[in-house]
Amino acid sequence: MTHEERQKQHEQASELPKKKKWLPHPVLSVVMVLIWLSLNNASMGHLVLGIFLSLGIPYLVQDFWPTAVRVHRPFKLCMYLLLVLVDICKANFIVAVQILGPNKKLNAKFFEVELDVKNDFTIAMLAGTITLTPGTVSSELSTDKKRLLVHALNVDDVEQAAADIKHRYERPLKEIFEC
């Protein structure tokens, strides 16, 4: 890993636009090595092959993904993932009861969430979180990337629900990826 870190520092020092970088997505490369090692047996040969692939593939595809993801607060990201997992478990039971109950009680609605986050990756993270928590599905992003259309299975107060999403998920994401 020390070799990679040195390369990363070198990369940040000499940053030129329009030039192919050797390490365009450092976080992605590390994650790729870890996933390769857990897919195969963790041996020395697979480590070398994994490092080779995780440097080669991002180099070849960097034109498709121009902005690198930067995690500003790793600890907060872990806390956020835990929060989402707990929410998924809680909401699953609520939605299970709602699905098995009578259909007439369900008050399904569309509502829009005004987005504060600008980065494409952050918007994708937020939309993914909204879909994974049962009861809400994000269904369309407006063309100017400012509003997200969300469908909720059972909601009474639309503005309260939108405010909940903003407060609970959007604010931590903004702090983690954009500040």
Partner: peptide, 23 residues
């Protein structure tokens, strides 16, 4: 899957599979 069959319109049915995937 019961939700997929039972719920009345498409956008309500969309909520069934997200549950099946997650938990």
């Amino acid at each position: 899957s019961i939700g997929l069959v039972k719920l009345p319109d498409f956008f309500r049915r969309l909520h069934g599979p997200t549950k099946a995937t997650t938990l």
